[in-house]
Amino acid sequence: MSAVTGTRRGAPQTTREARRAGSSRPPGARREERAGWLLTLPFLLLFGVFTAWPVIQSVFFSVTDITNRDLRTPFQVNFVAFEQYAKAFADPVFRQAALNTAYFVLVGVPLTMTIALAAAIALNTGITRFRAVYRLGFYTPVITSIVAVAVVWRFLLHPDSGLVNTVLAWVGIDGPNWLGSTTWAMPSLIAMATWRNFGTAMIIFLAGLQAVPQQLHEAAAIDGANAWQRFRNVTVPVLRPTILFVSVTTAIGYLQFFEEPFVMTQGGPLNSTISASMYTYQQFSFGNYGYAAALSYLIFLVIAIVTALQFRFLSEKED
């Protein structure tokens, strides 16, 4: 195609030929059109059936009273408008779950990002040897199944035979019953999630730090800026898009946290660690499909809002 459009004289001629062939587009276009659709078709079918359709249907479910008894006839259900949503806002357990999720996200995301950024800067500028070993070690938890590591952490945090309290006892501290305490259960889950996830953020920060020009640092140092001032005024501005990206993806993941309470606490003690996703799953397993669909839509809505806010808040300062 580039060959014909290249010469001015050739262009109208080809168009005329193409018109004669019954199409307003250059020859070969029809072949390309057919190939494009054939290559895309399997994806479109699978995506349409298993993603697009369920997304649309979950809106529909969330305004009906569908339960597991309607499994075979999902369209013969009663329309209840926003009753399921109203029920959610009045449901004390869901309110608790929403608060717990907010706690998990508001503490977990900044903690994960701070540790990840500190590790990335230490590896990028502070040391010269064994960089790859540290990087590999810090990243390892990310690839593991949350279920499996949650099982292991449950033993680590065991009040009597756990490693954590044993080590604390060496220095004279009588460690609490971490997962059995309404005060300590959530911080324990946050600690585990941070341990499991900071590696991803660290790797992305390390890639982002490559873009920070060395000369800027040197110039700032000559002007008498100390390490903290250089971090604030040279590194952070360049890193802002990376920080935005990491905060969005981490927050999206943490807003859906599920395996941690499922395996480590079953949402307890006294619902102090039940998450919005876990409560949604519970309602689903009780057969309340319409209610579960409404809850899952609320989670989705919060994810969308938080993402939009982060974009607004973090990219505005860029000037």
């Binding site: 999206i252 989670i299 989705f300």
Partner: peptide
């Protein structure tokens, strides 16, 4: 790109 699994699992199960 960003639609989480928690949004679709109920209708997906019915399907």
């Amino acid at each position: 790109l960003m639609i989480p699994g928690v949004v679709t699992f109920v209708p997906l199960f019915v399907l």
